[in-house]
Every structure is written in structure tokens, then in C-alpha cells.
Write a protein that binds this DNA or RNA. Structure first.
Lengths: 128, 128
DNA sequence: ATCCCACTTGGAGTTAACTCAAAGTCAAGA
DNA sequence: TCTTGACTTTGAGTTAACTCCAAGTGGGAT
């Protein structure tokens, strides 16, 4: 699969795809004999995985490390597991913060609804 | 309350507190006659609110707009409500993405646990 | 009186994560 | 043959959100 298609499929700009590859966030993609990238199924899986992780806000640096460990083979299973656990816990904590804020926003909005409602009632009374 | 204390209480650097005030993310804080900030209860509430919102990742730009609207008074109740709703929905969506990623990480970690476990068993067998 | 320390301002520097621009190559179609 | 268009590389530019630095001031302790 060529870059244009990959870009469309995963909604990542071509620049971003090149950038990710350049910094080692996805493993190198093979080229045809004129240097054009040809994404394999395996490449696509990486792209999809990285996109998912980035969407959730995992830092690029940690993901680069994961990809690097992966390429070193089975020796790094344990290290990869620990890395994922660490990021999982960070993500979990962040979701906790967000949940608190979401609740706070919800009750704030609720109060705004009431206040705006009362203002309207007042205006209605004046009209009569 | 002086800045050092506010900084400690909310774990925001003094630089960040000044920055927030400079860009209008918190309303202006009164100074004593030698120009030193003196945070009132009301100022502290803003600091705490903004910290909470920022921790959840709400963009500074939206928060500046909220503070601006607030300072314009009751005319802006409706606009403020809409702004909060919009940010709430964005936050909610983001949490959805993160939940998906969290689940994916959890099952990936689970698989790593199994794989690492099997490798250890293999090694144990070799030792016998 | 002098020294220290917590503050002040204005402006420059940093980091993460892209994003864009310039100049070049190659294959296919008119 | 010439052009078009999708790609290539290298390197610079951008954005958000801080973070740091230099130079200055006012008030309290020694």
C-alpha cells in the first residue's frame, strides 16, 4: 500500500507518517526500486497501533522506546511489559483527573442551565 | 496570600502563576503598595478552577475566553454555558478514546504476562 | 547602613509534536 | 519528448504551554 492510501485510511498526514518513521516511532518501511514506500500488512498494524496510542496521549518518547525494544527481539519481553504497565498506569491516573473535571463541568453546566432559566422567567414576567 | 504560598498550595510554579495572570487566564490580582501580589479568596478559587481544568487538558485559549466572558457580567451567561458544554463534550470524547486505549493496553499487558510466564517455565525445565 | 530575600517586569529560551517548503526523481500518459 | 503528479529528502518553521534569565525594588533583620 502506498503512502497516500495509508494516510487516508488512518487520517495521518503524509508528513506525519514520514516523521514517525524518521524518528523510529514505526519500524522502517520497505521501498520499491525507485525509493517509494510500500506499506506491508505488518507496517499497517504498527501505524494503527501508534495512532491509537498517540490519540490517547501516550508520549512519543515512550512509544519510540517500545518500538526499539520490540525490534531487539524476545530478550526485551519483560522490559516491554514494564514499559506498557507504566504507561497504562499514567493513562489510568489521567483518566481519573479527567473524570473529576468532567463531573465538575457537568454540575457547573447544570447550574448555568438553572440560572439562565431563571433569567428567562424573569424576562417573561416583565413582558406580561 | 502571597505568591510563594499560592504556588505551594496549588503546585503551580510562580512563573506559571504570573504567566496565567499575564495572558488573562486568571483575573488580575491586587498588589500592595510596593507592587507585590496579594491573592484574595476569590483569586484562589480561580487558580484552583483553572488548575483543575488545565490538568484535564482543556486548552488555555478556551479558558481565557471563559474568564473574559465572566468578567463581562451576566450578559454572557448563555455564551459561557455553551463554551463549557463544548469543552465538556470534547473532554468526554477524549475520555472515550482513552478508555479504548486503556483496554487495549490491559489486554496487551495480559498477553505479555502469559508470554513471559511461559518463557520462565521453559527455562525452569531446562535447568532440571 | 547594609545585606538578604522575596518579590517585580520584560523578554528570551525550551519542549513536544508536528507541519511546511524547496528542490529533486521517477513512471505513466498526451 | 514533454508534462504531470505522486512520491522523495533535508531542513526550517509553527504552536501550545510553559520556563528561565537578567536586572531592578522594597522591607525586614543584623
Amino acid at each position: 500500500m502506498r503512502m497516500a492510501e495509508v494516510s487516508a485510511k488512518y487520517e495521518l498526514s503524509q508528513d506525519t507518517l514520514r516523521y514517525y518513521e524518521r524518528i523510529g516511532l514505526i519500524p522502517p518501511v520497505n521501498r520499491n526500486n525507485s525509493g517509494v514506500r510500500n506499506y506491508t500488512e505488518d507496517n499497517l498494524k504498527w501505524v494503527e497501533f501508534i495512532k491509537c496510542m498517540r490519540t490517547a496521549g501516550l508520549p512519543i518518547e515512550a512509544l519510540i522506546e517500545y518500538v526499539g525494544l520490540f525490534q531487539l527481539g524476545d530478550e526485551t519481553l519483560e522490559a516491554r511489559k514494564e514499559l506498557l504497565k507504566e504507561q497504562r498506569d499514567l493513562l489510568f491516573a489521567k483518566m481519573g483527573d479527567m473524570k473529576k473535571t468532567l463531573e465538575r463541568l457537568d454540575s457547573k453546566i447544570e447550574r448555568y442551565e438553572q440560572t439562565v432559566g431563571e433569567k428567562e422567567k424573569l424576562l417573561n414576567n416583565l413582558e406580561k
